[in-house]
Design a protein around this nucleic acid. Structure first.
Lengths: 344, 344
DNA sequence: ATGGTTTTCGATAACGTTTAAGCTAATTTA
DNA sequence: TAAATTAGCTTAAACGTTATCGAAAACCAT
């Protein structure tokens, strides 16, 4: 491959008949360099549009000013929103971000992590895929000194700093609202173990039931993974075998999409027949006619806080801050009703 | 910053009491190396979990096996779908992808491009932000030999290879379907110049009108940018000032969200009162109750084709293939109706 | 003038690879 | 059997930076 036609320190140095070292120091405002030289160097660097080669710099400095962000799925609006908060905050703090998607699959998450390590990112904002797997990757990252902060989801076996909502409480509030609206046959759909978020949300669901003195019906706890298709099937088959809920607590956004479609495909309406509840973003009306009760997770703020925490850890000299930040949530109700349409 | 605790060629070389060159060649199956040595090297590299330092390699080879992907917005499902096609195809061809979002803003697109150039990506899959701006960045990329392929959107002033749908035809088909359904007061909402996609779609809209011998009502052409909020305002104010359409052709997905919310907020129903039409993805039912006519753009396939074209150009020895690939579309109709809900 | 400090720059090595060229010993060729 | 080739490794330079050390020049105080 042909070498890239780029302006380098060397070329600037040759041009000014000084050494690369001098140019480097001048650009970094080192006290080693005279004002005259500093100005001259900066002027020509500007004129030629010089941009430092971050590969070379990272190689020697072990510092890339790169942050990796690993998320499960682009279609989950919580993650598109929080990604924005992350990007903007990171830029303000002079870091670039690299977004990777694991699609709820461990192999891909592992690939993502390895790639980010290969790129020598300074830190990673992580949403792990659910379930158990070989933890060697995490150990390796820790060993390499790559800082990790979890947001939204946490890892059980690692005490990485995190920024999350109080999932148990949020789920409690969500379920209570359903109960307040006189619903009693409330389904819980999604994983209820493995991933921390799901476990906590399940506990909140139980809390609410017992607060309203409603007995738990084991048939109403329907395990599924976090995918839309699987959730659809689970919900559909529940309805098909005669289970008639009047509300559904969905662990994830895609779970809610799947459940919603299953409900509509069964000829039922939302929210008249069944109230759907989920955990989403703050842009409640951005999606047309998704008539859920929604826990606003404040994704933008979560993203920002996560960056702050991560950068704080990266730039800490010695001691590493391990903190668990909780972001406040709010219950929102959408305004639209939805049902199968007859004909156009 | 402390150096990363990583396995390097050097360490492997020391361990085996050979030189780094030998190790490098052994790992690359060079004919310079004996079978015995090759095996020995590979075994210990495996055992130690060696991963080559791509920074160092890229520095010398001018070849990163990295592809940049620039998209406008994560919330547009076309892009989340196509990103998946891109990621998977790229991996199959031994490239990693880096996703960047410009949020329809030129400054950010420019930052994205510069960052990707800094990272020494081999090529970029580009969806430019709409409107005019300083083209220096593009020129610089071309000069640096970074291959560029556009998909979905094209750049007017550069003949970069591209993968798109036939926007004019698709828009024609979409509008015709509205006309076939006896709608005559059809709005066109969104930009109708600047960005190529918008221009083409506007032409298709005109084509359909004249095919059905419907006169163009200039009041029905409502310019807006591609953002949801702006589209909402434009649609709302149109309805408020007494314009009563029975269908709306939306240039983009976020435009459609904005328009849809405006319609519902005005107490009108979709699609009974107003049919919404947009250009979307193939997962028509993934979004709950978005009751549009949708042109299925086959995003997954577009993504794959774009990667193929880009990689082909990157790996071409001399001549660079400049091709414009057209992907077939299909008109889909969603099944749900939607209106404002009265009470829970 | 002397000695000491400060300012300003250069020389050199290093980061982890790849690669062209060089060297030695073994093997082949005439 | 001497010359030529080949196999198998090492040397050294390079990619574009940064960091450390050293040296010359300038400044300052006595």
């Amino acid at each position: 491959m042909a070498p890239r036609n780029k302006v380098t320190l060397k070329k600037i140095a040759e041009l000014l008949k000084v050494t690369p070292a001098t140019v480097s120091k001048a650009l970094h405002d080192s006290s080693d360099i005279s004002d005259a030289m500093r100005k001259k160097v900066k002027k020509t660097a500007d004129k030629l549009g010089y941009r430092p080669n971050i590969l070379a710099r990272t190689l020697i400095q072990h510092r890339s000013f790169l942050l990796g962000v690993i998320i499960p799925d682009l279609r989950i609006s919580f993650f598109s929103e929080s990604s924005r908060g992350i990007y903007e905050r990171a830029r303000k703090r002079n870091y670039e971000t690299i977004l990777m998607v694991h699609d709820e699959k461990h192999e891909i998450e592992k690939e993502n992590l390895e790639f980010l390590s290969d790129l020598h990112v300074d830190g990673i904002l992580l949403n792990p895929a659910p379930g158990k797997f070989n933890y060697d990757v995490y150990d390796k990252l820790v060993e390499e000194g790559i800082q990790i902060v979890c947001y939204d989801r946490k890892l059980d076996d690692y005490n990485f700093p995190s920024v999350t909502i109080d999932d148990r409480k949020a789920s409690y509030i969500l379920t209570c609202e359903m109960l307040r609206l006189r619903r009693r046959k409330i389904l819980f759909l999604g994983p209820n173990k493995g991933i921390s978020v799901a476990r906590e949300r399940y506990l909140g669901y139980l809390d609410a039931l017992s607060a309203y003195k409603v007995a738990l019906n084991p048939d109403y706890v329907i395990p599924s993974d976090l995918s839309q298709t699987h959730s659809y099937e689970k919900m559909k088959s529940a309805l098909d075998r005669g289970i008639e809920p009047d509300a559904v607590v969905c662990v994830g956004a895609l779970v809610a999409y799947g459940a919603g479609n299953a409900i509509l495909d069964s000829g039922l309406s939302i929210p008249d027949d069944i109230i759907l509840g989920e955990f989403g973003d703050n842009d409640i009306n951005s999606r047309l006619g998704v008539p859920f009760l929604t826990i606003n997770q404040n994704p933008y703020k979560i993203g920002q806080a996560a960056v702050d925490l991560l950068v704080q850890n990266i730039e800490a000299k010695e001691k590493v801050v391990s903190e668990h930040i909780i972001i406040e949530t709010k219950l929102l109700r959408r305004e639209y009703g939805i049902r199968r349409h007859r004909s156009v």
